[in-house]
Design a protein around this nucleic acid. Structure first.
Length: 564
RNA sequence: UGGGGGAUCGUCUAGCGGUAGGACUACGGACUCUGACUCCGUCUGCCGAGGUUCGAAUCCUCGUCCCCCAGCCA
């Protein structure tokens, strides 16, 4: 794998780090962390955070920990931690031995909570969830203090111990920080620190029945790991006050700081865990790794490379303004990467038979084709040519518009690496009038693709020799939603109503040049003039070829045809 | 009507008192045995109004609009 670029554009976080370093903070260390909750699969938005956190560590010669924020057993699962590790690794990042879990800190967290209780900074509340909500007040009105707020330290200690011991049912009590029920920041109105959950945890089993909340856990985990810059997304800006409050009460040796950046939004897709889960559980897609999904596993299955995703994350930048990135940029970075590396092949997706009348019946000749014009080292290969070939249906028009310069009756075009051919006759199915075959002639003098007399031809078509062609299934993927913003508010509709009905088209009668018969699962190819295609890692096999279209080539003819 | 944040080309994003730059997109053109790639070129931008200054995207004032917060989710 190529070395990951260490130089990337500046951003406000780097400026903060530069200042910290100049001021000699944190013993000149830079320590970040990527802290996913294992309750879903990672998506392209997480890739932004991963590239940011690991990228910063690399650039400043620091460290980036992988830490699972696993404080809510009812939503989390090992399946997710495994997929997350696989995805981070696949993206090209290495957390070495620094694989941590918030659940590893449960004991420390518990003892720190006892300290808060002893300091009079936390108390056990016995209000119900509904009552707590009522007591919290509103955005404009202060809250009211719980009648349990002034329990004695001894009573709090006793109750908290019994909470841990499993004496109470879920919801019976919670541990709360004692801050200020009138605070304008609602998060500081005595936030919940611990709740009772008699649920087995995917790592700690039934060892615990009380679990710490995010705000309490995250900052302490950062401090335990001596993180210097704790980077999260904008919606946590309000939480920073609580992050700081907890750390200030505890006075731990390390004092991390939280900074927030804008999460990634992409048009024509959704990036919320809830919606992604819904797409999977309602079978709107085939799974988390459906090639239409914006998940890392989906992108991987689609044929995106780690390099292209990293480049994308670098190009979008890091800032504090909410924004929606055009998916065209993602498509650009994958084309850019694959153009350099993908071997070119010829494949006919929607075959139209062409018989070359003046070509000998059983002659088969091998023509030399360039494997990758962008990479001379990729060499050449031999492609068989014969009397009967297939071309793309859309490469022929009986009555072409002015700007169309592919094959048409009486017109001459070039078959790539082969000969010039001229269309002499169109054969139709008498039953329905559909074109079923073309009768053409070739010019033997144009072998290899050039005319000795110097005459030019407007178009070059890809083709496959019929007798040697190998069959394949090709899946044409397109954007999952028809609206740039699937969440746009429309009366009586949800994002599910905007799923693109044509986001997947399966073609079962594709004809590929014989070299593709050996295509190994997981390999990328450019099918000339069509796009980049990925031999499906799970389903492609020697006897049954299956390709996923990653992205089309840019197609200026499509634009002309559409705009008239 | 509380608090916390944010506004720069169509879209992302630089800029840190001294010529508003880059990328993507779009549109022209050159090249071409991929209507690809590449290369040239063009279009469009500082949320608004005042103020400070020789000079303001940047500093000040007042507005406007957008986002986040009332989980025992993260």
């Amino acid at each position: 794998m190529a070395e990951i670029e260490t130089k990337s554009p500046s951003n406000f976080i780097k400026m903060i780090i530069d200042e910290d370093l100049k001021a000699g903070k944190n013993e000149s260390r830079v320590a970040t962390r990527f802290p996913p909750e294992p309750n879903g699969y990672l998506h392209i938005g997480h890739a932004k955070s991963i590239c940011l956190n690991f990228g910063l560590a690399k650039e400043y010669e620091g460290t980036c920990n992988l830490r699972f924020d696993d404080t809510n057993p009812v939503k989390e699962d090992v399946e997710y931690v495994e997929s997350i590790k696989e995805d981070v690794r696949w993206l090209g990042f290495d957390w070495e031995a620094r694989e941590y879990y918030a659940s590893d800190y449960f004991e420390q967290l518990y003892h720190l909570a006892i300290r808060l209780i002893k300091d009079g900074k936390a108390y056990v509340d016995s209000l119900s969830a509904d009552e707590i909500r009522e007591f919290r007040g509103t955005l404009t009105e202060p809250g009211k203090e719980s009648p349990y707020r002034n329990r004695s330290v001894e009573e709090n200690l006793d109750l908290f111990q019994r909470m841990r011991d499993g004496e109470f049912e879920d919801g019976r009590h919670v541990l709360r920080a004692k801050i200020d029920m009138a605070h304008p920041n609602l998060l500081l109105r005595d936030p919940t620190l611990y709740r009772i959950r008699k649920t087995a945890h995917h790592r700690t089993g039934d060892q615990w029945c009380i679990y710490p909340m995010y705000d309490y856990t995250h900052c302490i985990s950062d401090a335990i790991e001596c993180i210097t810059h704790s980077i999260c997304t904008l919606e946590f800006e309000n939480n920073r006050a609580l992050y700081d409050w907890v750390l200030e009460q505890l006075g731990l040796p390390c004092r991390p700081r939280q900074y927030e950046f804008a999460r990634l939004n992409l048009n024509y897709t959704v990036l919320s865990k809830r919606k992604l889960i819904q797409l999977v559980t309602e079978n709107r897609v085939s799974g988390w790794d459906d090639p239409r999904m914006p998940t890392i596993s989906g992108l991987r299955r689609r044929g995106f490379t780690p390099e292209s995703i990293r480049t994308f994350c670098e190009r979008i930048g890091v800032a504090k303004a909410n924004s929606i990135v055009d998916i065209a940029l993602l498509e650009h970075t994958i084309r850019e990467d694959l153009n350099k590396s993908a071997p070119r092949m010829m494949a006919v997706l929607r075959p139209l038979k062409v018989v070359i009348e003046n070509y000998p019946e059983d002659k088969v000749e091998l023509l030399e084709a360039v494997n990758n014009p962008e990479d001379p080292a990729a060499g050449t290969r031999q492609v068989p040519f014969s009397r009967e070939i297939y071309i793309e249906q859309e490469d022929f028009m009986e009555d072409p518009p002015k700007k169309y310069f592919r094959l048409a009756p009486g017109r001459e075009v070039r078959l790539r690496y082969a000969y010039f051919i001229t269309c002499k006759e169109v054969i139709k199915d008498p039953a329905n009038g559909r074109i079923v075959e073309l009768r053409c002639t070739y010019d033997p003098a144009t072998r290899g693709g050039d005319a000795p007399d110097g005459r030019k031809v407007k178009a070059t078509l890809h083709w496959v020799s019929a007798a040697q062609a190998v069959g394949a299934q090709v899946r044409l993927y397109d954007r999952l939603f028809v609206k740039p913003d699937p969440d746009e508010k429309v009366e009586g509709k949800t994002f599910l109503d905007f799923i693109n009905p044509n986001s997947l088209e399966v073609l079962n009668d594709c004809k590929l040049e014989p070299a593709l018969a050996q295509a190994a699962p997981g390999r990328m190819f450019q099918f000339e003039r069509l796009g980049y295609f990925f031999a499906d890692p799970k389903e492609c096999a020697a006897g049954r070829l299956v390709f996923n279209r990653t992205v089309t080539l840019k197609d200026s003819w499509a634009r002309i045809a559409q705009n008239g």
